[in-house]
């Protein structure tokens, strides 16, 4: 959690303000192609905006290792290292649910 908090703080410091779309860490903007930023009716793909950062990190780590079954997420999670994953998770956690 400490590292995550630091990531959030680092983002806030870099932008000089609260998290905005412009501050999105590399990779985050692609996620919303499937994970709707707004409520979309009738989607089986879960929304991640406003979810706890630690939970998003856990999902990504387990998908990446293959411990949890997935369709595309295992293949996508392998493209992000721990630091990148934590930055993305912190950013989505800071978005309105």
């Amino acid at each position: 959690m400490g590292r995550l908090l630091l990531s959030v703080l680092a983002l806030a410091l870099l932008s000089g303000g609260p998290a905005q779309a412009a501050d999105a860490p590399p990779g985050a903007s692609s996620c919303t192609g499937c994970h709707a930023p707004l409520k979309v009716t009738d989607s089986v793909i879960p929304r991640i905006a406003g979810r706890k950062a630690a939970d998003i990190v856990t999902f990504m780590r387990e998908y990446r290792s293959g411990a949890w079954p997935s369709s595309v997420m295992g293949r996508i999670a392998k493209g992000f290292d721990d630091q990148q994953t934590e930055a993305i998770a912190a950013w989505f956690a800071a978005q309105p649910e």
Partner: peptide, 12 residues
């Protein structure tokens, strides 16, 4: 998932 993706990306 494909059908959900279409609804999401067109909404976005």
């Amino acid at each position: 998932y494909a059908a959900s993706w279409f609804r999401t990306i067109t909404a976005e």
